[in-house]
C-alpha cells in the first residue's frame, strides 16, 4: 500500500465522519430509518486489510461518531463487531478466481450482486447491535425491529448511491 492510497483513505475517513455528524445525524426518515453511513468506510477498506488494523480504525471511528450522538460506546461496540466479522466474511465470499490485489470492494469493482451479499448482513448486524444496546432496559420490541429493518434498507440504498456518484473504477475516490 503506497502513500497516495493512505492519503486517499485518510481523506475519505475525514469526509465520511464529517458527513455523518453534520448532515446524516439529522436525517431520520419516517422517524425510524437512521443512516449510519460511516459503516461504509469500514466496509470499503481494501480487501486484504487484516482484522487488527480494521479493529483499531473501527474503534476510533465509532468513538468519534459516539461523541456527537451522545451514545458513548454504543457505536464503538457495534463498529468493533463489524470490524471483527469483516475479514472472515470476505474470506467466505471469495469468488472462484480469488480477489485482485489492492482492490477496494466497491460496486464498480465487484458488481452489485457480490456487494449486496457482502454488505447487507454486515449493515444488519450493525443496526441489530446498535439498537439492541440502545434500547436495553426498555420494553420496546416492535419499534426496535422496525428501526433495524428500515435503517438497514436505507443505509444500503444510500451506500449504493454514494458509490455510484463518488467512486471510480479500480482506484479509490
Amino acid at each position: 500500500m503506497n502513500s497516495s492510497r493512505v492519503l486517499v483513505l485518510t481523506i475519505s475517513f475525514i469526509l465520511f465522519s464529517l458527513v455523518q455528524i453534520i448532515v446524516l445525524k439529522n436525517l431520520v426518515l419516517f422517524g425510524m430509518a437512521f443512516c449510519f453511513l460511516h459503516v461504509l468506510f469500514l466496509l470499503l477498506l481494501p480487501i486484504e486489510t487484516k482484522t487488527i488494523p480494521s479493529l483499531f480504525i473501527g474503534f476510533v471511528l465509532g468513538l468519534f461518531v459516539d461523541l456527537f450522538y451522545d451514545t458513548v460506546g454504543i457505536h464503538t461496540a457495534s463498529m468493533l463487531v463489524i470490524a471483527y466479522l469483516r475479514s472472515p466474511w470476505i474470506k467466505v465470499l471469495t469468488p472462484t478466481g480469488g480477489y485482485d490485489d489492492n482492490m477496494r470492494p466497491t460496486i464498480l469493482n465487484v458488481g452489485i450482486g457480490w456487494f449486496s451479499t457482502y454488505s447487507l448482513p454486515l449493515f444488519l448486524i450493525y443496526n441489530l447491535v446498535f439498537f439492541f444496546i440502545e434500547n436495553l432496559g426498555t420494553e420496546l420490541f416492535l419499534p426496535v425491529v422496525q428501526k433495524i429493518i428500515a435503517s438497514t434498507i436505507f443505509v444500503f440504498v444510500l451506500s449504493i448511491i454514494v458509490q455510484l456518484l463518488f467512486y471510480r473504477r479500480r482506484r479509490g475516490i
Binding site: 482484522t51 487488527i52 479493529l55 474503534f59 465509532g62 459516539d66 458513548v72 460506546g73 454504543i74 464503538t76 461496540a77 468493533l80 463487531v81 470490524a83 471483527y84 444496546i133
Partner: peptide, 13 residues
C-alpha cells in the same frame, strides 16, 4: 484484541 476493545466500549457504555 476484539474482546479487549469491546470490553473498553462496554465499560464506556
Amino acid at each position: 484484541l476484539f474482546v479487549l476493545l469491546e470490553a473498553v466500549a462496554i465499560w464506556l457504555i
